[in-house]
C-alpha cells in the first residue's frame, strides 16, 4: 500500500499550476491537503503521473464581494468554525462542518479537495448544492463558473475538465436572514453519512417564505428537494408539515442500495432527517 511513481511539481503561482495541469491533462492532479487523494493513491486506486502541489498558492481567502461570499479552494475545513460570515449567513454550512471527518482531517482537508473528490455522501458537496453555490474552476483557457447543481455529475465524477481545477466556491449571500441546519446519520462519528440533510429557511414567524433542502448519501450526487421546497412555501412550519415535506422529498429520490444500508432505509431516513433538520433550522431562530 504505497503509491505508484509520479512526478512532483510545486506550483508557485496559479498560472504555473494551470500551465502544468494543462500540460499533463488526464495524467495530472492538483494536490492540496491530500486527505482524499493520497488514500486512493496508497491503495493504487488513483495513479496520477504528475502531482501539482498547490498548497503554496494564495487560494485560502474567505472574502465578501458585494452579495457573494467567496471561499478559496485551499480554505481548510477547520476555518469554517471561526468565520463570522459563514456563521451569520450560512448556518447550515456551519452545522454541516461539525460532521466532517475528524480533527486532523478538518485541519488539513480543503474545500476544493472535498468538492473535487465528490464523494456522494460527503457534506460539502451537499452544502454547495444546498446554497446554490457556484464552483469557480480555472484552466489555461480561462475561468468557468459552474453552478453546483451541474458540477457534481456522478459519484467521484465532476464537471472539471482535464487541466482544470477548482479555485473558489462562491456562495450567494441571502438578502434576508436565513435559518439553517444540517443533520446526518452515520454509523460512527466522522464517517461519511448514510444520509445527511441540509435545510435553509427564510421565515416570517413560523411561516416559510422560502426553503431549500438538499441531501447527501441518497444518490450518486447531492440532490435538492424541489417538490418539498415548493410545498413548504407559504406554509406554517409544524412537525406535521415538516414530516410531509420529508415524505415529498423521499418520494422524489431514488436512493442507492448497498451492503451497508438499503434503499428503503435511506428513503426512510430522508423523511425523518428532513423533518428534523427543518425543525432544527426553525428552532435555531430562538
Amino acid at each position: 500500500m504505497r503509491p505508484a511513481a509520479f512526478e512532483y511539481h510545486r506550483a508557485a503561482s496559479i498560472e504555473e499550476a494551470l500551465s502544468l495541469l494543462a500540460e499533463f491533462g488526464e495524467d495530472g492532479r492538483p494536490i492540496a491537503g491530500g486527505q482524499s487523494l493520497v488514500p486512493m493513491m496508497n491503495l493504487r486506486l488513483a495513479r496520477p503521473e504528475h502531482l501539482v502541489d498547490i498548497n503554496s498558492l494564495e487560494l485560502d481567502k474567505i472574502e465578501r464581494t458585494g452579495d457573494t461570499l467567496s471561499l478559496g479552494a485551499l480554505v481548510r475545513h477547520e476555518r469554517y468554525f471561526n468565520e463570522p460570515l459563514i456563521a451569520e449567513h450560512f448556518p447550515a454550512f456551519l452545522d454541516a462542518a461539525h460532521w466532517i471527518g475528524h480533527p486532523t482531517i478538518r485541519r488539513h482537508g480543503s474545500l476544493g479537495g472535498s468538492i473535487s473528490h465528490a464523494d456522494p455522501s460527503a457534506e460539502l458537496p451537499c452544502v454547495c448544492v444546498l446554497h446554490d453555490a457556484t464552483i469557480v474552476a480555472r484552466s489555461v483557457n480561462g475561468e468557468r463558473r459552474i453552478p453546483a447543481s451541474e458540477f457534481f455529475i456522478s459519484a467521484y465524477v465532476t464537471a472539471l475538465e482535464p487541466g482544470e481545477m477548482v479555485v473558489a466556491v462562491e456562495l450567494p449571500i441571502p438578502q434576508r436572514k436565513q435559518h439553517g441546519a444540517f443533520i446526518e446519520i452515520a454509523e460512527r462519528m466522522g464517517d461519511f453519512a448514510v444520509i445527511g440533510i441540509g435545510a435553509v429557511l427564510e421565515l416570517d414567524g413560523d411561516t416559510v417564505l422560502d426553503a431549500r433542502i438538499a441531501c447527501a448519501g441518497a444518490e450518486l450526487t447531492p440532490v435538492r428537494a424541489a417538490s418539498a421546497e415548493q410545498f413548504l412555501k407559504g406554509r406554517q412550519l409544524t412537525e406535521e408539515v415538516a414530516q410531509e415535506a420529508g415524505q415529498l422529498f423521499a418520494q422524489s429520490v431514488d436512493p442507492v442500495n448497498d451492503y451497508r444500508s438499503s434503499a428503503e432505509y435511506r428513503r426512510h431516513l430522508i423523511v425523518q432527517l428532513t423533518s428534523r433538520t427543518l425543525m432544527r433550522a426553525m428552532k435555531s431562530k430562538a
Binding site: P39, L43, E187, R188, M189, G190, F192, Y259
Partner: peptide
C-alpha cells in the same frame, strides 16, 4: 454493533479498508 467482514456473491470481500471495516471509535 459495527464490525462485519462482508463478501459479495462471488466471494469478493467488500470491506477491505478501514473506511468499510468499522471498528469502535472513542465517541461511540
Amino acid at each position: 454493533l459495527f464490525e462485519h467482514m462482508i463478501y459479495d456473491e462471488q466471494c469478493q470481500p467488500l470491506t477491505t479498508s478501514f473506511a468499510d471495516y468499522l471498528m469502535p471509535l472513542a465517541p461511540e
